[in-house]
Design a protein around this nucleic acid. Structure first.
Lengths: 226, 226
DNA sequence: TGGCAGTGTGTGACTTTGTCACATACTATG
DNA sequence: CATAGTATGTGACAAAGTCACACACTGCCA
Protein backbone atom coordinates (compact mmCIF):
# COMPACT_ATOMS: atom_id res chain seq x y z
CA UNK A 1 0.00 0.00 0.00
CA UNK A 2 1.37 3.41 -1.01
CA UNK A 3 0.13 6.39 1.00
CA UNK A 4 2.85 9.06 0.93
CA UNK A 5 1.33 11.89 -1.18
CA UNK A 6 4.73 12.97 -2.49
CA UNK A 7 5.41 9.49 -3.83
CA UNK A 8 1.93 9.27 -5.29
CA UNK A 9 2.45 12.59 -7.04
CA UNK A 10 5.75 11.50 -8.47
CA UNK A 11 4.34 8.23 -9.69
CA UNK A 12 1.46 9.92 -11.43
CA UNK A 13 3.73 12.29 -13.30
CA UNK A 14 6.19 9.57 -14.28
CA UNK A 15 3.77 6.84 -15.25
CA UNK A 16 1.45 8.21 -17.82
CA UNK A 17 -0.94 5.26 -17.60
CA UNK A 18 -1.98 6.38 -14.13
CA UNK A 19 -3.32 9.57 -15.68
CA UNK A 20 -5.31 7.74 -18.33
CA UNK A 21 -6.68 5.04 -16.11
CA UNK A 22 -9.97 5.34 -14.30
CA UNK A 23 -10.10 6.25 -10.62
CA UNK A 24 -10.97 2.76 -9.53
CA UNK A 25 -7.84 1.29 -11.05
CA UNK A 26 -5.67 4.03 -9.59
CA UNK A 27 -7.08 3.25 -6.16
CA UNK A 28 -6.33 -0.44 -6.66
CA UNK A 29 -2.86 0.40 -7.87
CA UNK A 30 -1.81 2.37 -4.83
CA UNK A 31 -3.63 -0.03 -2.55
CA UNK A 32 -1.94 -3.18 -3.83
CA UNK A 33 1.64 -2.10 -4.40
CA UNK A 34 4.59 -0.95 -2.36
CA UNK A 35 7.81 0.99 -2.87
CA UNK A 36 11.16 -0.68 -2.36
CA UNK A 37 14.72 0.58 -2.33
CA UNK A 38 17.67 -1.27 -3.71
CA UNK A 39 21.35 -0.36 -3.41
CA UNK A 40 23.59 -0.12 -6.48
CA UNK A 41 25.15 -3.18 -8.10
CA UNK A 42 22.60 -5.63 -6.79
CA UNK A 43 21.54 -8.55 -8.98
CA UNK A 44 17.85 -8.23 -9.80
CA UNK A 45 17.11 -11.08 -12.17
CA UNK A 46 19.09 -14.20 -12.94
CA UNK A 47 18.87 -15.94 -16.28
CA UNK A 48 16.41 -18.83 -16.07
CA UNK A 49 14.50 -17.40 -13.13
CA UNK A 50 10.76 -17.40 -12.94
CA UNK A 51 9.79 -13.83 -12.27
CA UNK A 52 7.61 -13.32 -9.23
CA UNK A 53 7.22 -9.56 -9.34
CA UNK A 54 7.34 -6.68 -11.73
CA UNK A 55 9.24 -3.51 -10.83
CA UNK A 56 8.40 -0.02 -12.09
CA UNK A 57 11.46 2.16 -11.70
CA UNK A 58 10.94 5.54 -10.06
CA UNK A 59 14.57 6.48 -9.55
CA UNK A 60 17.91 4.95 -10.57
CA UNK A 61 18.83 2.63 -13.44
CA UNK A 62 19.28 -1.05 -14.13
CA UNK A 63 21.19 -2.84 -16.83
CA UNK A 64 19.85 -5.87 -18.66
CA UNK A 65 22.54 -8.02 -20.23
CA UNK A 66 23.55 -11.39 -21.57
CA UNK A 67 26.58 -13.46 -20.58
CA UNK A 68 28.33 -15.64 -23.14
CA UNK A 69 29.92 -19.04 -22.60
CA UNK A 70 33.33 -17.41 -22.32
CA UNK A 71 32.12 -15.01 -19.63
CA UNK A 72 31.93 -11.97 -21.85
CA UNK A 73 28.91 -9.72 -21.43
CA UNK A 74 26.78 -7.52 -23.64
CA UNK A 75 24.25 -4.95 -22.56
CA UNK A 76 20.83 -5.32 -24.19
CA UNK A 77 19.33 -2.12 -22.79
CA UNK A 78 18.96 -0.04 -19.67
CA UNK A 79 15.91 0.67 -17.57
CA UNK A 80 15.41 4.16 -16.22
CA UNK A 81 12.78 6.17 -14.32
CA UNK A 82 9.29 5.75 -15.75
CA UNK A 83 10.21 2.41 -17.29
CA UNK A 84 9.96 -1.12 -16.08
CA UNK A 85 11.64 -4.40 -16.68
CA UNK A 86 9.40 -5.34 -19.51
CA UNK A 87 11.13 -8.67 -19.93
CA UNK A 88 9.80 -9.52 -16.51
CA UNK A 89 6.29 -8.68 -17.61
CA UNK A 90 6.77 -10.69 -20.74
CA UNK A 91 7.98 -13.64 -18.65
CA UNK A 92 5.07 -13.34 -16.31
CA UNK A 93 2.50 -13.27 -19.06
CA UNK A 94 4.09 -15.99 -21.18
CA UNK A 95 5.26 -17.97 -18.15
CA UNK A 96 8.72 -18.44 -19.54
CA UNK A 97 11.99 -18.07 -17.63
CA UNK A 98 13.86 -14.79 -17.79
CA UNK A 99 16.33 -15.01 -20.71
CA UNK A 100 18.98 -12.62 -19.37
CA UNK A 101 20.48 -10.97 -16.30
CA UNK A 102 19.64 -7.67 -14.70
CA UNK A 103 21.50 -5.60 -12.09
CA UNK A 104 20.95 -2.22 -10.51
CA UNK A 105 23.55 0.36 -11.49
CA UNK A 106 22.54 3.32 -9.43
CA UNK A 107 20.46 2.79 -6.27
CA UNK A 108 16.91 2.06 -7.29
CA UNK A 109 13.57 3.16 -5.96
CA UNK A 110 10.77 1.16 -7.51
CA UNK A 111 7.16 0.10 -7.22
CA UNK A 112 6.71 -3.62 -6.84
CA UNK A 113 3.73 -5.36 -8.39
CA UNK A 114 2.81 -8.97 -7.82
CA UNK A 115 2.40 -11.31 -10.77
CA UNK A 116 -1.27 -11.75 -10.00
CA UNK A 117 -1.84 -8.01 -10.26
CA UNK A 118 0.18 -7.83 -13.46
CA UNK A 119 -2.00 -10.50 -15.00
CA UNK A 120 -5.28 -9.11 -13.68
CA UNK A 121 -4.57 -5.57 -14.79
CA UNK A 122 -3.43 -6.76 -18.18
CA UNK A 123 -6.83 -8.33 -18.56
CA UNK A 124 -8.84 -5.40 -17.29
CA UNK A 125 -7.05 -2.13 -17.65
CA UNK A 126 -6.42 -0.69 -21.04
CA UNK A 127 -4.06 2.09 -19.96
CA UNK A 128 -1.91 -0.49 -18.20
CA UNK A 129 -1.87 -2.77 -21.19
CA UNK A 130 -0.96 0.07 -23.53
CA UNK A 131 1.89 0.99 -21.25
CA UNK A 132 3.28 -2.55 -21.33
CA UNK A 133 2.86 -2.84 -25.06
CA UNK A 134 4.57 0.42 -25.83
CA UNK A 135 7.46 -0.48 -23.56
CA UNK A 136 8.00 -3.91 -25.01
CA UNK A 137 7.92 -2.46 -28.53
CA UNK A 138 10.66 -0.07 -27.59
CA UNK A 139 12.75 -2.86 -26.14
CA UNK A 140 12.37 -4.85 -29.31
CA UNK A 141 13.68 -1.87 -31.29
CA UNK A 142 16.52 -1.44 -28.82
CA UNK A 143 17.60 -5.03 -29.08
CA UNK A 144 17.36 -4.97 -32.87
CA UNK A 145 19.73 -2.01 -32.82
CA UNK A 146 22.12 -4.04 -30.70
CA UNK A 147 22.04 -6.82 -33.27
CA UNK A 148 22.87 -4.35 -35.99
CA UNK A 149 25.76 -2.95 -33.99
CA UNK A 150 27.45 -6.21 -33.10
CA UNK A 151 26.82 -7.83 -36.47
CA UNK A 152 27.99 -5.04 -38.72
CA UNK A 153 29.87 -2.17 -37.12
CA UNK A 154 33.54 -2.10 -36.33
CA UNK A 155 34.47 -1.95 -32.68
CA UNK A 156 36.54 1.22 -32.97
CA UNK A 157 33.61 3.09 -34.49
CA UNK A 158 31.16 1.76 -31.95
CA UNK A 159 33.56 2.72 -29.19
CA UNK A 160 33.93 6.27 -30.53
CA UNK A 161 30.15 6.61 -30.54
CA UNK A 162 29.93 5.14 -27.09
CA UNK A 163 32.35 7.71 -25.70
CA UNK A 164 30.41 10.57 -27.25
CA UNK A 165 27.11 9.31 -25.93
CA UNK A 166 28.18 8.44 -22.43
CA UNK A 167 30.43 11.33 -21.51
CA UNK A 168 29.25 14.46 -19.80
CA UNK A 169 28.84 16.98 -22.57
CA UNK A 170 30.14 19.82 -20.42
CA UNK A 171 33.19 18.38 -18.69
CA UNK A 172 33.86 15.79 -21.43
CA UNK A 173 34.71 13.39 -18.65
CA UNK A 174 33.40 9.96 -17.82
CA UNK A 175 34.16 7.57 -15.00
CA UNK A 176 34.38 4.09 -16.49
CA UNK A 177 36.69 1.14 -16.58
CA UNK A 178 37.69 -0.47 -19.82
CA UNK A 179 36.02 -3.62 -18.60
CA UNK A 180 32.66 -1.92 -18.13
CA UNK A 181 32.84 -0.48 -21.65
CA UNK A 182 33.69 -3.91 -22.99
CA UNK A 183 30.70 -5.39 -21.18
CA UNK A 184 28.40 -2.81 -22.70
CA UNK A 185 29.71 -3.27 -26.21
CA UNK A 186 29.96 -7.05 -26.03
CA UNK A 187 33.68 -7.23 -26.70
CA UNK A 188 36.72 -7.92 -24.55
CA UNK A 189 38.65 -5.63 -22.26
CA UNK A 190 41.89 -5.97 -24.21
CA UNK A 191 40.26 -4.78 -27.40
CA UNK A 192 38.82 -1.74 -25.68
CA UNK A 193 42.18 -0.92 -24.08
CA UNK A 194 43.96 -1.17 -27.42
CA UNK A 195 41.53 1.06 -29.24
CA UNK A 196 41.44 3.61 -26.42
CA UNK A 197 45.21 3.82 -26.49
CA UNK A 198 44.98 4.38 -30.22
CA UNK A 199 42.54 7.23 -29.67
CA UNK A 200 44.82 8.68 -27.03
CA UNK A 201 47.83 8.64 -29.35
CA UNK A 202 45.74 10.47 -31.92
CA UNK A 203 44.94 13.11 -29.34
CA UNK A 204 41.23 12.35 -29.26
CA UNK A 205 41.02 11.41 -25.60
CA UNK A 206 43.15 11.20 -22.50
CA UNK A 207 43.10 8.21 -20.22
CA UNK A 208 43.55 7.90 -16.50
CA UNK A 209 42.82 4.98 -14.26
CA UNK A 210 39.06 4.61 -14.08
CA UNK A 211 38.26 7.66 -16.20
CA UNK A 212 38.42 9.03 -19.72
CA UNK A 213 38.37 12.63 -20.92
CA UNK A 214 37.34 13.51 -24.44
CA UNK A 215 39.71 16.02 -25.99
CA UNK A 216 38.30 16.27 -29.48
CA UNK A 217 34.63 15.45 -29.86
CA UNK A 218 34.58 16.46 -33.52
CA UNK A 219 37.21 14.01 -34.66
CA UNK A 220 35.74 11.33 -32.42
CA UNK A 221 32.49 11.90 -34.20
CA UNK A 222 34.25 11.47 -37.54
CA UNK A 223 35.70 8.20 -36.24
CA UNK A 224 32.30 6.93 -35.20
CA UNK A 225 30.66 7.56 -38.55
CA UNK A 226 33.46 7.24 -41.09
CA UNK B 1 -14.62 -9.41 -46.37
CA UNK B 2 -13.88 -13.12 -45.98
CA UNK B 3 -16.71 -15.51 -46.82
CA UNK B 4 -15.14 -18.78 -47.98
CA UNK B 5 -16.01 -21.26 -45.19
CA UNK B 6 -12.83 -23.29 -45.77
CA UNK B 7 -10.68 -20.21 -45.25
CA UNK B 8 -12.70 -19.22 -42.19
CA UNK B 9 -12.22 -22.68 -40.73
CA UNK B 10 -8.49 -22.59 -41.32
CA UNK B 11 -8.18 -19.16 -39.78
CA UNK B 12 -10.05 -20.20 -36.66
CA UNK B 13 -7.84 -23.22 -36.10
CA UNK B 14 -4.62 -21.30 -36.76
CA UNK B 15 -5.39 -18.14 -34.87
CA UNK B 16 -6.29 -19.03 -31.36
CA UNK B 17 -7.59 -15.57 -30.52
CA UNK B 18 -10.53 -16.12 -32.85
CA UNK B 19 -11.65 -18.96 -30.60
CA UNK B 20 -11.40 -16.89 -27.43
CA UNK B 21 -12.97 -13.76 -28.81
CA UNK B 22 -16.68 -13.07 -28.63
CA UNK B 23 -18.93 -13.64 -31.58
CA UNK B 24 -19.30 -9.97 -32.32
CA UNK B 25 -15.59 -9.49 -32.78
CA UNK B 26 -15.29 -12.57 -34.96
CA UNK B 27 -18.01 -11.19 -37.18
CA UNK B 28 -16.20 -7.87 -37.41
CA UNK B 29 -12.95 -9.67 -38.15
CA UNK B 30 -14.20 -11.61 -41.13
CA UNK B 31 -16.23 -8.64 -42.29
CA UNK B 32 -13.38 -6.16 -42.31
CA UNK B 33 -10.45 -8.16 -43.63
CA UNK B 34 -9.41 -9.86 -46.82
CA UNK B 35 -7.04 -12.59 -47.94
CA UNK B 36 -4.13 -11.81 -50.22
CA UNK B 37 -1.59 -13.94 -52.04
CA UNK B 38 2.02 -13.02 -52.54
CA UNK B 39 4.63 -14.82 -54.67
CA UNK B 40 7.99 -15.87 -53.22
CA UNK B 41 10.90 -13.44 -52.87
CA UNK B 42 8.77 -10.33 -52.83
CA UNK B 43 9.80 -7.43 -50.63
CA UNK B 44 7.15 -6.84 -47.97
CA UNK B 45 8.53 -4.09 -45.78
CA UNK B 46 11.36 -1.67 -46.39
CA UNK B 47 13.33 -0.17 -43.57
CA UNK B 48 11.99 3.25 -42.67
CA UNK B 49 8.53 2.58 -44.07
CA UNK B 50 5.38 3.60 -42.29
CA UNK B 51 3.29 0.45 -42.08
CA UNK B 52 -0.19 0.77 -43.46
CA UNK B 53 -1.44 -2.78 -42.90
CA UNK B 54 -0.84 -5.76 -40.69
CA UNK B 55 -0.56 -9.24 -42.22
CA UNK B 56 -1.50 -12.47 -40.47
CA UNK B 57 0.23 -15.33 -42.25
CA UNK B 58 -1.92 -18.33 -43.12
CA UNK B 59 0.53 -20.12 -45.39
CA UNK B 60 4.17 -19.58 -46.40
CA UNK B 61 7.00 -17.82 -44.60
CA UNK B 62 8.69 -14.45 -44.51
CA UNK B 63 12.11 -13.42 -43.34
CA UNK B 64 12.77 -10.30 -41.30
CA UNK B 65 16.33 -9.06 -41.52
CA UNK B 66 18.74 -6.19 -41.15
CA UNK B 67 21.23 -4.92 -43.71
CA UNK B 68 24.55 -3.47 -42.60
CA UNK B 69 26.48 -0.59 -44.13
CA UNK B 70 28.71 -3.04 -46.00
CA UNK B 71 25.70 -4.81 -47.51
CA UNK B 72 25.88 -7.86 -45.27
CA UNK B 73 22.60 -9.18 -43.93
CA UNK B 74 21.43 -10.91 -40.78
CA UNK B 75 18.12 -12.64 -40.20
CA UNK B 76 16.29 -11.51 -37.07
CA UNK B 77 13.50 -14.09 -37.25
CA UNK B 78 11.05 -15.76 -39.57
CA UNK B 79 7.30 -15.48 -39.71
CA UNK B 80 5.28 -18.62 -40.33
CA UNK B 81 1.64 -19.74 -40.42
CA UNK B 82 -0.33 -18.55 -37.41
CA UNK B 83 2.05 -15.68 -36.82
CA UNK B 84 2.13 -12.12 -37.98
CA UNK B 85 4.65 -9.45 -38.59
CA UNK B 86 4.54 -8.14 -35.08
CA UNK B 87 7.04 -5.43 -35.88
CA UNK B 88 4.39 -4.03 -38.15
CA UNK B 89 1.89 -4.01 -35.31
CA UNK B 90 4.44 -2.41 -33.06
CA UNK B 91 5.10 0.25 -35.69
CA UNK B 92 1.43 0.88 -36.13
CA UNK B 93 0.75 1.29 -32.44
CA UNK B 94 3.84 3.35 -31.68
CA UNK B 95 3.73 5.17 -35.01
CA UNK B 96 7.39 4.63 -35.69
CA UNK B 97 8.97 3.55 -38.98
CA UNK B 98 9.74 -0.10 -39.57
CA UNK B 99 13.32 -0.75 -38.40
CA UNK B 100 14.19 -3.64 -40.73
CA UNK B 101 13.40 -5.39 -44.01
CA UNK B 102 11.01 -8.23 -44.70
CA UNK B 103 10.65 -10.49 -47.73
CA UNK B 104 8.50 -13.48 -48.55
CA UNK B 105 10.45 -16.72 -48.89
CA UNK B 106 7.76 -19.14 -49.90
CA UNK B 107 4.57 -17.84 -51.54
CA UNK B 108 2.40 -16.30 -48.85
CA UNK B 109 -1.29 -16.40 -48.16
CA UNK B 110 -2.25 -13.86 -45.52
CA UNK B 111 -5.06 -11.90 -43.96
CA UNK B 112 -4.67 -8.17 -44.31
CA UNK B 113 -5.84 -5.85 -41.57
CA UNK B 114 -5.97 -2.10 -41.84
CA UNK B 115 -4.16 0.06 -39.29
CA UNK B 116 -7.44 1.48 -38.04
CA UNK B 117 -8.72 -2.01 -37.26
CA UNK B 118 -5.46 -2.94 -35.57
CA UNK B 119 -5.75 0.08 -33.32
CA UNK B 120 -9.47 -0.33 -32.62
CA UNK B 121 -9.23 -4.01 -31.80
CA UNK B 122 -6.23 -3.39 -29.59
CA UNK B 123 -8.40 -1.06 -27.61
CA UNK B 124 -11.44 -3.25 -27.44
CA UNK B 125 -10.66 -6.89 -27.84
CA UNK B 126 -8.74 -8.71 -25.16
CA UNK B 127 -8.10 -11.91 -27.12
CA UNK B 128 -6.58 -9.85 -29.92
CA UNK B 129 -4.41 -7.87 -27.57
CA UNK B 130 -3.20 -11.01 -25.85
CA UNK B 131 -2.31 -12.45 -29.21
CA UNK B 132 -0.23 -9.42 -30.14
CA UNK B 133 1.45 -9.31 -26.76
CA UNK B 134 2.42 -12.95 -26.76
CA UNK B 135 3.80 -12.64 -30.26
CA UNK B 136 5.88 -9.58 -29.56
CA UNK B 137 7.27 -11.22 -26.42
CA UNK B 138 8.39 -14.17 -28.48
CA UNK B 139 10.06 -11.92 -31.00
CA UNK B 140 11.91 -10.14 -28.26
CA UNK B 141 13.21 -13.49 -27.03
CA UNK B 142 14.14 -14.46 -30.58
CA UNK B 143 16.10 -11.31 -31.18
CA UNK B 144 17.85 -11.59 -27.82
CA UNK B 145 18.96 -15.05 -28.88
CA UNK B 146 20.35 -13.57 -32.08
CA UNK B 147 22.34 -11.07 -30.06
CA UNK B 148 23.77 -13.87 -27.98
CA UNK B 149 24.70 -15.83 -31.08
CA UNK B 150 26.50 -13.09 -32.94
CA UNK B 151 28.14 -11.62 -29.87
CA UNK B 152 29.50 -14.80 -28.34
CA UNK B 153 29.42 -17.92 -30.48
CA UNK B 154 32.02 -18.90 -33.02
CA UNK B 155 30.87 -18.99 -36.62
CA UNK B 156 31.87 -22.61 -37.22
CA UNK B 157 29.71 -23.77 -34.30
CA UNK B 158 26.80 -21.63 -35.32
CA UNK B 159 27.11 -22.97 -38.85
CA UNK B 160 27.14 -26.57 -37.66
CA UNK B 161 23.96 -25.94 -35.68
CA UNK B 162 22.41 -24.16 -38.64
CA UNK B 163 23.00 -27.15 -40.91
CA UNK B 164 21.44 -29.53 -38.40
CA UNK B 165 18.39 -27.35 -37.93
CA UNK B 166 17.73 -26.49 -41.53
CA UNK B 167 18.34 -29.78 -43.28
CA UNK B 168 15.66 -32.32 -43.98
CA UNK B 169 16.05 -34.87 -41.21
CA UNK B 170 15.26 -37.76 -43.56
CA UNK B 171 17.27 -37.04 -46.69
CA UNK B 172 19.89 -34.96 -44.86
CA UNK B 173 19.82 -32.65 -47.83
CA UNK B 174 19.27 -28.94 -48.09
CA UNK B 175 19.08 -26.60 -51.04
CA UNK B 176 20.93 -23.45 -50.10
CA UNK B 177 23.66 -21.22 -51.41
CA UNK B 178 26.56 -20.22 -49.23
CA UNK B 179 25.39 -16.65 -49.60
CA UNK B 180 21.97 -17.36 -48.16
CA UNK B 181 23.51 -19.08 -45.16
CA UNK B 182 25.80 -16.12 -44.65
CA UNK B 183 22.81 -13.77 -44.78
CA UNK B 184 21.02 -15.78 -42.11
CA UNK B 185 24.00 -15.96 -39.81
CA UNK B 186 25.12 -12.38 -40.36
CA UNK B 187 28.56 -13.24 -41.71
CA UNK B 188 30.15 -13.19 -45.15
CA UNK B 189 29.96 -15.72 -47.93
CA UNK B 190 33.70 -16.39 -47.95
CA UNK B 191 33.67 -17.36 -44.30
CA UNK B 192 30.80 -19.76 -44.85
CA UNK B 193 32.49 -21.30 -47.89
CA UNK B 194 35.73 -21.82 -46.01
CA UNK B 195 34.10 -23.48 -43.01
CA UNK B 196 31.90 -25.66 -45.20
CA UNK B 197 34.96 -26.87 -47.07
CA UNK B 198 36.53 -27.66 -43.73
CA UNK B 199 33.49 -29.70 -42.77
CA UNK B 200 33.63 -31.49 -46.10
CA UNK B 201 37.28 -32.42 -45.67
CA UNK B 202 36.39 -33.84 -42.26
CA UNK B 203 33.69 -35.97 -43.91
CA UNK B 204 30.83 -34.24 -42.11
CA UNK B 205 29.05 -33.00 -45.22
CA UNK B 206 29.27 -33.09 -48.97
CA UNK B 207 28.88 -30.01 -51.09
CA UNK B 208 27.44 -29.53 -54.56
CA UNK B 209 26.51 -26.33 -56.31
CA UNK B 210 23.44 -24.96 -54.53
CA UNK B 211 23.03 -27.87 -52.13
CA UNK B 212 24.59 -29.53 -49.09
CA UNK B 213 24.17 -33.07 -47.79
CA UNK B 214 24.88 -33.94 -44.19
CA UNK B 215 26.95 -37.11 -43.91
CA UNK B 216 27.50 -37.25 -40.16
CA UNK B 217 24.91 -35.53 -38.03
CA UNK B 218 26.45 -36.78 -34.77
CA UNK B 219 29.83 -35.21 -35.31
CA UNK B 220 28.21 -32.08 -36.65
CA UNK B 221 26.31 -31.90 -33.43
CA UNK B 222 29.57 -32.23 -31.49
CA UNK B 223 30.96 -29.37 -33.56
CA UNK B 224 28.00 -27.16 -32.79
CA UNK B 225 28.22 -27.61 -29.05
CA UNK B 226 31.90 -28.24 -28.35
C1' DT C 1 26.57 -26.32 -80.82
C1' DG C 2 29.34 -23.03 -79.19
C1' DG C 3 29.42 -18.71 -76.96
C1' DC C 4 27.94 -15.89 -73.27
C1' DA C 5 25.73 -13.88 -69.17
C1' DG C 6 24.47 -14.77 -64.67
C1' DT C 7 25.10 -17.09 -60.67
C1' DG C 8 27.73 -19.75 -57.36
C1' DT C 9 32.11 -21.07 -55.37
C1' DG C 10 37.44 -21.06 -54.36
C1' DT C 11 41.55 -18.65 -52.84
C1' DG C 12 45.35 -15.78 -51.03
C1' DA C 13 46.77 -11.67 -48.79
C1' DC C 14 45.63 -8.68 -45.53
C1' DT C 15 43.08 -6.26 -41.52
C1' DT C 16 40.37 -6.48 -37.51
C1' DT C 17 38.80 -8.79 -33.58
C1' DG C 18 39.06 -12.19 -29.84
C1' DT C 19 41.95 -15.12 -26.66
C1' DC C 20 45.46 -16.29 -23.53
C1' DA C 21 48.99 -15.65 -20.42
C1' DC C 22 51.19 -12.86 -18.43
C1' DA C 23 53.49 -8.19 -16.50
C1' DT C 24 52.79 -3.93 -14.47
C1' DA C 25 50.57 -0.02 -12.08
C1' DC C 26 47.46 2.28 -9.21
C1' DT C 27 44.49 2.64 -4.79
C1' DA C 28 42.54 1.89 -0.51
C1' DT C 29 43.03 0.08 3.88
C1' DG C 30 44.73 -1.68 7.75
C1' DC D 1 54.19 1.46 4.02
C1' DA D 2 52.97 -3.30 2.91
C1' DT D 3 49.73 -5.60 0.57
C1' DA D 4 45.45 -7.25 -1.60
C1' DG D 5 42.45 -6.05 -4.92
C1' DT D 6 41.43 -3.69 -8.99
C1' DA D 7 42.74 -1.59 -13.45
C1' DT D 8 45.52 -1.53 -17.40
C1' DG D 9 49.42 -2.91 -20.90
C1' DT D 10 51.41 -6.26 -24.08
C1' DG D 11 52.83 -9.82 -27.36
C1' DA D 12 51.72 -13.94 -29.71
C1' DC D 13 48.45 -16.29 -31.79
C1' DA D 14 43.68 -17.85 -33.59
C1' DA D 15 39.31 -16.62 -35.63
C1' DA D 16 36.67 -13.72 -38.56
C1' DG D 17 35.88 -10.14 -42.04
C1' DT D 18 37.49 -7.75 -46.45
C1' DC D 19 39.11 -7.33 -51.01
C1' DA D 20 40.22 -8.61 -55.47
C1' DC D 21 40.23 -11.68 -58.10
C1' DA D 22 39.85 -16.60 -60.67
C1' DC D 23 37.16 -20.19 -61.98
C1' DA D 24 33.08 -23.38 -62.68
C1' DC D 25 28.45 -24.50 -63.58
C1' DT D 26 23.77 -23.55 -65.78
C1' DG D 27 20.58 -21.98 -68.94
C1' DC D 28 19.73 -19.73 -73.00
C1' DC D 29 20.03 -17.83 -77.41
C1' DA D 30 22.20 -17.11 -81.84
Amino acid sequence: MITDPAVIDELITQFHFLQCADADFVRQFFGGTKVIHLPADQPICQQGMQCSHLALVIEGTARVYKIGENGREITLYRIGPGESCILTASCILSQKPFPAFAVSEQPIEAVIISTSDVVRWSNNEQAWRDYLFRLISERLSDVISVVEEVAFRRVDRRLAGYLLQNSDNGSNRMQVTHQSIASDLGTSREVVSRILKDFEQQGLISITRGAITLEDRDHLNDKSTE
